[in-house]
Write a protein that binds this DNA or RNA. Structure first.
Lengths: 343, 343
DNA sequence: GCTCCCCGTTGGAACGATCAAGACCTCGGG
DNA sequence: CCCGAGGTCTTGATCGTTCCAACGGGGAGC
């Protein structure tokens, strides 16, 4: 009996308490919880009844200490920003939490230091607070992936290792090019032939990837992309200005954009000029954000399968944490197109 | 020496390793970490050097086991939804993670079961996986608060205990009425006298609170609210229809809405009728969402001080977890108004 | 010179679980 | 009849930290 006589009744019951009540040893209770098939059927029932009666749950700290694992997945929240990108990340986090929960894991969020992206990872890793990480901002070309690999920290990245094509860590990503290609084909099928692109500056891997899909779709139909593209900052105003210039100089009948933010800029330009989105000029955005859903007349947008992505990430994590570890190839998911009034 | 000779060098160093290197006992190292002022200055330096050299971090599981605390704050993510409300929650979570991090805590997210809102809380509580909870959806009138209090689980709610005015748990909330009053006064100051309200159905405490601010502002100026209000579902279409009816029947020159979603509906109606938001009819939303920022011509919106709210929540949590616990009164924060083109 | 006190330090025990190995029983084969 | 195998349960040790009570040295006071 490990309990001190007179102990307050609110204290949580331990393995030993259950063992005593069921008339078995601690180890047997432990087995009942973790390896039920090792027990004889009637013993199992007896132990389970005792667990039920006492309302016993294994103490996480003790289990973590012994097994050297916490069943926690660490994820860094990128530091404060008011911008578009994080809406998608938040949707991903939601899905991730649900999926990890089903797999018996929880998600631990920690804050990122803007100056030192490694800070935080290091602490959690050395104090064995998490079993693995999910990394979401590899696209910055930041040193996280290399650093984590060097420390032998298990992690899965949501986002391709753009700058290191033969990186060996597991990753899951959405095929941005396939998304914009889908969007562009959708417009081609509607009869558009002059389809412009508004994307991000050339140093963005993701931006160039998305642009490639637009370019590929046009070239497949033998159409030229010359003069039909613009690369700007990811702001509404940039989209507005870029689309104004393109309308004057290239006379497109449709726009494909690297983000919903840029697409909103296009919608502004159309409104400025008395043109109707959808009817006169088609517009397609990227991310299927809240904005795309509520704006008039509805913004057609490429939708990332973030729920699937979360499932794949958790799957890869489970492989990584298995004995022996299973590590599969990178996984690329195809986005879909949410069609609305603007196309 | 607790280390097995030949142990793999990647294994994390322990307190005993540091103690041996520094030539002191375990307890002294522990004190160096937790109560540095108990040590003589030169000893402290020696221990800190050893810690530095080995790259030691205390093992979280062992510490948690001994101290019966995890330094984790649990927060339940409400189950999958594609709606407006969670954008604000996500912004709150961001701030919460940053603030808890500064206080030495981390945030553990867990998934909510739609059917049984208590599921999840129970597990984490009994297995001592978290020290406390942050509860965000008290407004549903769900049983969490009562349940948690009964279990003596420390928690702070973001949201007032609407249905139980003399609840004793700490809470932090944003004064919605103050926000809509601010919005309405802003319109009054611009010369508007016929200001309509579009809000949520009567069974929403939050909706009624926000409505009260509008009503109060009008009555303070001796203006009537009769026939100027509509209560509908929180969708764009509802806002659109409600505003169409109000325009016909009450001829308002301005709208105050319980959400940006409803305000978007108003903007749609104005566009349908060739009216210009801001110039012809003023519109104000609530939450200062992404949408408000990018829509044309910019939607004036009540902005909740979620960063402050997170700070207050963490402050309340620290009080709750102190010895002895300090529990302060509920805290109501005043929102601000983000003024844009629509007003 | 002795005691007392204080400060810094020490070894042992405890937190609650799992791991490793052994004990006991039953059963079948030589 | 004895032995080994396999299934079931028990015992002792251990994970890495902090709590507890006790210990030793040095200065102040008598």
């Amino acid at each position: 009996m490990s309990r001190i006589p007179g102990r307050v009744p609110t204290a949580a019951p331990t393995l030993a308490d259950v063992a005593e009540l069921a008339g078995v040893s601690r180890q047997t209770v432990s087995n009942a919880v973790n390896n039920p098939d090792l027990l004889r059927a009637d013993t199992l029932v007896r132990v389970q009844d005792a667990i039920e009666e006492l309302g016993y749950s294994p103490n996480r700290a003790a289990r973590n200490l012994r097994t050297r694992s916490s069943h926690l997945i660490g994820m860094r929240m990128s530091p404060g920003q008011e911008f578009t990108a994080n809406a998608a990340i938040d949707r991903f986090v939601h899905s991730l939490v649900e999926t990890t929960g089903e797999a018996g894991y929880h998600v631990l969020l920690f804050a990122g230091d803007g100056n030192d992206p490694l800070r935080g990872y290091d602490d959690l890793l050395r104090s064995t607070a998490v079993d693995a990480f999910v990394v979401t901002d590899t696209y910055l070309g930041n040193p996280q992936a290399a650093w984590l690999r060097e420390r032998r920290a298990p992690f899965v990245s949501f986002g391709r290792p753009w700058d290191d094509p033969d990186a060996t860590h597991p990753w899951v990503d959405v095929d941005g090019a396939a998304g914009t290609e889908l969007a562009t084909r959708h417009l081609l099928d509607k009869g558009h032939e002059r389809i412009a692109w508004i994307g991000w500056r050339k140093d963005s891997f993701i931006g160039e990837d998305r642009r490639a899909g637009w370019s590929r779709a046009l070239k497949d139909r033998g159409l030229s992309t010359t003069g039909m593209a613009s690369r700007v900052e990811d702001t509404v105003n940039s989209g507005r200005e870029a689309s104004a210039v393109l309308l004057d100089e290239a006379r497109p009948s449709a726009f494909v954009c690297a983000s919903d933010t840029l697409a909103m800029g296009v919608l502004h330009t159309l409104a400025d000029r008395g043109l109707r989105a959808g009817a006169d000029i088609a517009v397609i955005g990227f991310d299927d954000s809240q904005v795309a859903q509520v704006v008039r007349p509805g913004l057609t947008s490429v939708r990332q399968p973030l729920e699937d992505a979360a499932i794949q990430v958790v799957d890869a994590l489970e492989g990584l944490l298995a004995h022996p570890p299973r590590v599969g190839p990178g996984i690329l998911l195809a986005p879909t197109l949410a069609v609305r009034g603007s196309s």
